[in-house]
Design a protein around this nucleic acid. Structure first.
Lengths: 116, 116
DNA sequence: CTGTATCCTTGGCGATACTG
DNA sequence: CAGTATCGCCAAGGATACAG
């Protein structure tokens, strides 16, 4: 007796967690950074490679193909010499920007807090 | 001659990508979902385990310890019988909510677009 | 420049059993 | 209930070389 018991929970989880759809797109190493750089301006393969530092071309190709298949990134071959390829965000890709920016904002705040 | 060359890029990448800080916290399997559920209400270990479905206790422990060390999650042992432990978001943890919600919103939109 | 093709490593994660 | 302790896997990612 006199056992203290916790109150029963009233609310079950309010909604099955709906993160999966979006995370399946922006998940994976480098992907958020790629979207971040493309959100600033369209960029070429080698420009992205430089932006990202140590990414291997294989992985960059993989990510870009995936993003293109998801309708997030547009790939355009320019008739220049030598041929160049320009990657940009599609309209759908731009919908990801608020999410990325929210992450960036929190990143800044966390960094600030840590330095205190 | 008459070689078509692309215009030089004016702007270099505007800012070193600032995603790392935040992604090091919400990155990793299950982590965003844990924050998502905790953002609704404080929850116990086994409640989270149920919420998350197939997560193993080992991984859940790992994640919670990490989040606690990052100052994102608060762990409180309640003097009940049997002893229970309640996890909740700290003030810092609440700062992650906008990012999570942005991801959720995009997830919904992507899902809607795919179904068309 | 823009990728492919191969090979190899690692650590994140799952499964299971067990403890206080 | 709330976790540890072990074991093992395998797929994501890195390194490198090569091709159109």
């Amino acid at each position: 007796m006199a056992v203290v018991r916790r109150k029963n929970r009233v609310a079950p989880p309010p909604e099955k967690c709906p993160l999966t759809e979006c995370l399946s797109i922006i998940g994976g190493a480098w992907t958020p950074n790629i979207i971040w750089y493309l959100s600033v301006q369209p960029r070429r393969f080698s420009e992205l490679k430089n932006d990202l530092g140590s990414i291997s071309p294989k992985v960059l190709t993989e990510r870009l193909k995936r993003l293109e298949a998801d309708g997030v990134v547009l790939r355009e071959v320019k008739p220049t010499s030598p041929p160049t390829v320009e990657y940009s965000l599609t309209e759908l890709g731009n919908e990801l920007k608020p999410a990325i920016e929210a992450i960036v904002n929190v990143g800044h705040r966390l960094k600030a807090l840590k330095q205190q």
